[in-house]
């Protein structure tokens, strides 16, 4: 059982305070959904958790199993068991998906590879591709090169499946995907929560995703702060009322 804790997190992007005090505690196997309108700071929060250069944590703490992650570089956070699926995955010409994953796995501790049954990366890639309907032809491509928006999102989930992190942050993994694809991708993530106890922080501004994901908790992020936390019923309510009630000055 692992625990991922975010406490009093403040983060700025380009000299602007964007995340203004976020607390979250996620345990293995739990699914937390963070919902918020455009510009509320969801992506900045995601990058702050992963440690992107340029997104600076100005206060607060990020801990994985009690180990402080603020100030450590992204690659060490990844090796500690954290994964970020980007809202806009990056193209890396000439660097093959399989080569990148081979490098990524080479530096990992055994713990995060539990349950892989000693399969080759190639087998795992094929298996994960089949699970989410990712065309096998794309497995031989350089990272995200010549992939559509939806294919890139699937590619992120595919990598998640191969790398088997302890916790993942999914930044609008549902955008650009059609209904069937959202179902396939959510199904894969949902299974991972029991398969190896993946803990999930899914950031989105649609509720569609969290039905498929069977969220344990829903947080509402407005203007860099979590203004409400509840069960899945909170999302249903947001669906009816919108974020208006939570907007500053409302």
């Amino acid at each position: 059982m692992s625990i991922f804790e975010v406490e009093g997190l403040h983060a700025s992007a380009g000299a602007r305070d964007v995340v203004k005090g976020v607390d979250l505690t996620v345990r293995s196997g739990e699914v937390h959904v963070v919902m918020g309108p455009n510009g509320s700071g969801k992506s900045t929060l995601a990058h702050a958790l992963m440690g992107r250069p340029g997104t600076s944590v100005t206060a607060g703490s990020i801990r994985l199993d009690g180990v402080e992650l603020t100030g450590t570089p992204s690659w060490k956070r990844a090796r500690a068991g954290l994964f970020l699926a980007l809202q806009q995955p990056i193209e890396v010409p000439g660097v093959l998906l399989e080569a990148a994953l081979t490098e990524a796995l080479a530096g990992r501790s055994g713990a995060s590879q539990e349950g892989d049954g000693g399969q080759s990366i190639d087998d795992r890639l094929k298996q994960e591709a089949a699970a989410i309907g990712f065309d096998e032809r794309f497995l031989r491509r350089p990272l995200n090169v010549d992939l559509s928006g939806g294919e890139r999102k699937r590619n992120e989930v595919l990598q998640l499946g191969v790398l088997r992190p302890k916790f993942c942050v999914l930044d609008e993994i549902d955008s650009g995907l059609d209904v069937d694809a959202v179902r396939a991708v959510s199904g894969r993530i949902e299974r991972a929560t029991s398969e190896w106890g993946l803990g999930v922080i899914a950031v989105t501004h649609f509720h569609r995703l969290l039905r498929e994901l069977r969220a344990d908790k829903v947080h509402v992020l407005v203007d860099g702060r979590i203004v409400a936390t509840g069960g899945p019923e909170l999302a249903e309510e947001l669906e009816r009322t919108g974020y208006g009630a939570y907007e500053p000055g409302a």
Binding site: M50, R52, P53, P73, S74, W75, A78, R79, F83, L84, L86, P89, I90, E91, V92, V95, A100, L101, E103, A104, L105, G107, R108, L143, Q159, L163
Partner: peptide, 11 residues
């Protein structure tokens, strides 16, 4: 590009 690879655990 560097951040993307780093976020996968590559130094």
């Amino acid at each position: 590009q560097r951040y993307y690879l780093e976020s996968r655990g590559i130094p």
